[in-house]
Design a protein around this nucleic acid. Sequence first.
DNA 1: CAGGAAGGTTAGCGGTCGTTAACCTGATGG
DNA 2: CCATCAGGTTAACGACCGCTAACCTTCCTG
Lengths: 196, 196
Amino acid sequence: MATRTDAPTRREQILKEAARLFAERGFHGVGVDEIGAAVGISGPGLYRHFAGKDAMLAELLVGISGQLLTGAKRRVREADGVGAEALLDSLIEGHIDFALDDRPLITLHDRELDRLRDSDRKLVRQLQRQYVELWVEVVRELYPELTEPTARSAVHSVFGLLNSTPHLGRAGSLPGRGATAALLHRMARGAFASAG
Amino acid sequence: MATRTDAPTRREQILKEAARLFAERGFHGVGVDEIGAAVGISGPGLYRHFAGKDAMLAELLVGISGQLLTGAKRRVREADGVGAEALLDSLIEGHIDFALDDRPLITLHDRELDRLRDSDRKLVRQLQRQYVELWVEVVRELYPELTEPTARSAVHSVFGLLNSTPHLGRAGSLPGRGATAALLHRMARGAFASAG
DNA sequence: CAGGAAGGTTAGCGGTCGTTAACCTGATGG
DNA sequence: CCATCAGGTTAACGACCGCTAACCTTCCTG
């Protein structure tokens, strides 16, 4: 992975703050002036970087879905031949990393999808579907007794479990990142194991 | 439980439709005219029944939290002495019933809490906290090796799992209510069992 | 050193939305 | 039989919000 060391561009600043604000107060609950203020410019200045408020949300959601899918595909590729056990662990690990590092995006991901233009929403849905199907394949390989609809439901439910991180108290109430990740991982595996 | 047989009052109609619309498009994404139209009256007519749009959301959220807590307390009372195993099963069953029967409310429950007036939000948070603590006690009785913060995280995560029902395709894609409930139940138990 | 692109600014327009005001109607009960 | 009231209606107001227009710097570059 090409690790970023250079400073974030203004566009990236804006996207990050917009994600945070959208997650906190909802897409309609945040004004462009607030987003601008969050990056030190004011209101209409945003339009030098984005076509509009909708475009920010679209870029965020497409970006999330794309990143998740790309990462998962890479894991499948790199884990070729190591067995379904290790691959599922890798997928879970990737999803947990994402859920813990980009909480606002995870929140947006299943909250504001309906606010997108039709074409963008279709694209995001397609990316999501591919991501899910990728998991379903791995899960069914590991638990062949699961029917395909059952496996899909199980995958969605585990996503719900992993995406619960925003609800795990903001501050130091949770037992540290590593411990939280390990707990979520164990629970996800336990949930799958009991699905059949 | 005193089963309702009489027709729903207008207030109840409004709340039900408002819940559905809020869940579909977000609190700010729904206008009072739409809510009115959904029950056959128009816009400002709602103000004969509610002080304002905020009041509808507040009543919905307080109602949900209260119902969840009341039901859970009843289950604890009725299950006195039957052991932690059966009690946890009962709590899970109750939560699943709620998640399957009142999907819009479940969605609102963890999506629009921040839109409430301070006092209402505090009340809802307090009811939620009691509900969580009730689960935590049972879980820790059943799995004494769990620390209290770990148990609390586990409970939140299982809520995420159980509340994933809105993401399980609207139509006939899921394998029937009974099968879905059973699947969720098994997965929740498996997740808890693997938390330690 | 001109000059244009990049990236800001403020003023303001147009539309939407929550809410209120004023009015109407049908049922109810003394 | 009339007063009252619950439960509607439409008109309209005021606030807010997304977005555009017009203008102003700063800086790179031929």
